[in-house]
Amino acid sequence: MSDVKLQNVTKRFDSTLAVDDVSLEIGDGEVLGIVGPSGCGKTTSLRLVAGFETATDGSILYDGEDVTHVPPENRNVGLVFQSYALFNNMTVLGNVTFGPKMQGVGKAERRERAQELLDLLDIGELADRDPQTLSGGQQRRVGLARALAIEPRILLLDEPMTGLDAKLKQTLRQELGDLLDELGVTTLYVTHDQEQAMSMCDRIAVMNEGVVEQVGTPSEVYESPENEFVANFVGTSNLLQGTIRDGRVDFGFTELDAEGLPERDDATIAVRPDDFTVGEGPITAEVQNLFYLGEKVQALATLDDGTELTLELDRHRDSVSVGDALALDIDATHLHVIRQ
């Protein structure tokens, strides 16, 4: 295991700037997630760390050693792809022992190591199976075992849960989280699914258009988004304009106590859907649409001045229909001012 650093890394493909002056640090044993929309540069960043792309500028360090120009086969990185990418010409055991074999580990030792990993991942009995006969979840575990078998300096996970059904995703998320904790392996986890990243990672880097917008723990990124992009990408935010003065914030449609918020005339304030109290309060909004999401219900409501709000309703308590007028209040303790 290693700590990995990206120092002012830039990657340009012809005229496209895929990664723009990115600096990141992944501590020894840390799980860092990179989240962002398609084309934001997260996969390119992972490929730069793996060695499949070479930085146009900047450098990549493993434990302080510059590996920017080291080919991928000499970097000792474990890679797990969304498509599993298992070798179908080999058995499960053949897949898992492939890496140690390339490292020159003896046959008995690599078989023992592979079997241990397969047992750890609860697929010990599948060692002699053809990968093509396994389920998606089992294939994913084989892919993970294969990547871990080389005792990688860093484990790179590229959308490893995408394409699985919700239940399996939940199970694997828990298992993978436990496994990474247990092994303490330095991990870079790339996904467009911010929920996955928040539940699995020690820290998250939010990327957009090749630039890292914010790095922080999941709660820091969610509770204190640094800019509008992060506020909108990580979770849902209502970005409201207001004036903060003398410890109070004036949204136009209501005024609240806002102790601790910086004084500003034209502040953009992020209010999460669950920061609204529904049922009582000075604000009135008309429900335009309701989205039943299973565990919760999201409502789209508009204020008299036309401002749109996204609210979270309690599906047991709040009996709401489209067209209803809702009384709302805002929990001022969670308000967060977006950096201009």
């Binding site: 793996a50 000499n74 792809f81 179908n88 492939f98």
Partner: peptide, 16 residues
């Protein structure tokens, strides 16, 4: 087959 990912998996595992 997913040629690129299979190739890159093998190379990351140390194969030339």
């Amino acid at each position: 087959m997913d040629l690129q990912q299979i190739e890159e998996s093998a190379r990351s595992l140390g194969a030339s």
